[in-house]
């Protein structure tokens, strides 16, 4: 599992802003966006992302798209945690073979305290806490 993102996050955010028709959302991602973040439509989600709605973005991992019907071409999915309001969110996206962005997941992070855990780890490494 690569420890670096497969894609440029800024490029993704810019595309949400400038070329929203080039971005697709999987049905579950849109349903979660509606139920968790009050973002009801795909344009609502893309405008939110374009407007720097993903605060304190933190890269989690990059993993292979398991349901890729063409296994010859490796497609990676980048996953990030972000904050919005008081919610720790999770977004996962990839670029398909045609160069279109696909938002695969957009929900509340299951890694509760992930950012806090990372901060504590960093603080421990620097000797701020034991």
């Amino acid at each position: 599992m690569p420890d670096k993102p497969a894609y440029n996050l800024v490029e993704f955010v810019t595309c949400c802003d400038k070329n929203p028709e080039e971005v697709y959302m999987i049905g579950n991602a849109l349903r979660d966006a509606r139920n968790i973040f009050h973002l009801h439509t795909e344009p609502d989600v893309l405008k939110f992302i374009a407007n720097n709605g993903l605060e304190n973005v933190s890269f989690i991992n990059s993993s292979l798209w398991r349901k890729n019907p063409d296994p010859v071409v490796e497609i990676f999915i980048d996953a990030y945690e972000f904050m919005t309001g008081g919610i720790l969110g999770y977004i996962a996206f990839f670029k398909n073979i045609k160069g279109k962005w696909v938002i695969k997941s957009f929900h509340q992070s299951n890694e509760r305290g992930g950012i806090m855990e990372a901060a504590l780890k960093k603080a421990k490494e620097k000797g701020f806490i034991k």
Partner: peptide
């Protein structure tokens, strides 16, 4: 309106046909 792809098992409003209906509901 929803589409299910039997190739990649993805599901969604792939052709952005629901936005108007959702906005009307809102």
């Amino acid at each position: 309106i929803s589409y299910m792809c039997l190739g990649c098992e993805s599901e969604g409003d792939f052709f952005k046909e629901n936005t108007d209906a959702i906005n009307l509901a809102l």
